[in-house]
Nucleic acid binder design. Structure first.
Lengths: 167, 167
DNA sequence: TTAAACTTTCAAAAATAATTGAAAGTTTGT
DNA sequence: ACAAACTTTCAATTATTTTTGAAAGTTTAA
């Protein structure tokens, strides 16, 4: 396989993976492109490479910056903006989990808390509802915390310990 | 908040959370409904509760069973089928991660392997591509393994240890 | 202050994904 | 073998999400 083909395959794959996990395909593709680029890329180049419109590029770059995983750069003497991706994968994982936790998990937890604390009457149906949603609340809270704490420890003893013990 | 309202809120929330993570909304809603139900539910009832068509209910129940998180049940004397959800949350997490790994992560890893092993020429561009995709391969492989191993240990010393140390 | 070189916005259009419903398929009892 | 009671399938429709592109906005340089 030659470079151009591999590059394209990677961008497509990363885009597909994004879609499957609820991330807009183009957003994931732009991210892929920037991750494998050894130097800052202009919006123009992104549009050209991915064959997308200026508006699309602009909006998705903005989204990536909001996620904190893509940065704007300026080149001396150049008027236009360039972009680079966070290339440290541990850092990337931390940012993605933080953001998804904040935007999706935390709000869901809030609702879970609300619905699990209603006054259940005597019926088995209502009792089961309260019981199950309470368990779900605890579980999601625990998972959310674990992910948060785990990503804090980049590449250190913990990860290695866990891997070792599990092998 | 009264029961009916809470129930509805939970089903809606679970559906929305599903969407955000790449799971069809109705599929997540059916799952939510079954999780909080203390007894098996018929397709008829699901259609009624969620106001969806028979075809929709049938297809999404099939998908949930393919995931291994919803089971068919038969009631003595009844011709029609009933459904129940896996209610053990550790078990649920194991099944979901296994399935997503198998369907999405593993195929992506295969491609990552392919593209990261091309023969790069001397250019910084190609070298960086190989370097970055190799790192990504290692990272995703590690994360996939970790998730797999972690979910194997349901609620045992490891999880507790990790939690404790991180707090 | 003007205009060139850019970026952002957002209503409309296009693409994609989910849903419907009726026909086809299956199973069970008589 | 028949038919009642169900479930599944899938082409067509509908809903949702994404993308476009042109107008509006911004910044910089002269």
């Amino acid at each position: 396989m030659e470079f151009k083909e591999a590059k394209n395959k990677f961008v497509q794959t990363w885009g597909a993976l994004g879609s499957q996990w609820g991330i807009n395909k183009t957003m994931a593709q732009i991210h892929a492109l920037l991750m494998i680029s050894n130097e800052p890329v202009s919006m123009e180049d992104i549009m050209e490479e991915l064959q997308i419109s200026r508006g699309n590029a602009s909006m998705n770059l903005r989204a990536l910056m909001d996620w904190g995983i893509v940065y704007k750069e300026f080149k001396a003497g150049e008027r236009k903006e360039f972009f680079t991706a966070e290339k440290d994968l541990d850092e990337l994982a931390v940012k993605i989990s933080r953001e998804r936790s904040k935007r999706e998990i935390k709000p869901a937890l809030k609702i879970l808390k609300e619905v699990s604390t209603i006054e259940a009457n005597e019926s088995a149906e209502e009792k089961h509802f309260v019981d199950q949603t309470s368990k779900l609340y605890d579980f999601v809270l625990k998972a959310d915390n674990m992910l948060d704490k785990m990503t804090e420890f980049n590449e250190n003893w913990l990860g290695k310990l866990v891997i070792k013990m599990m092998k």
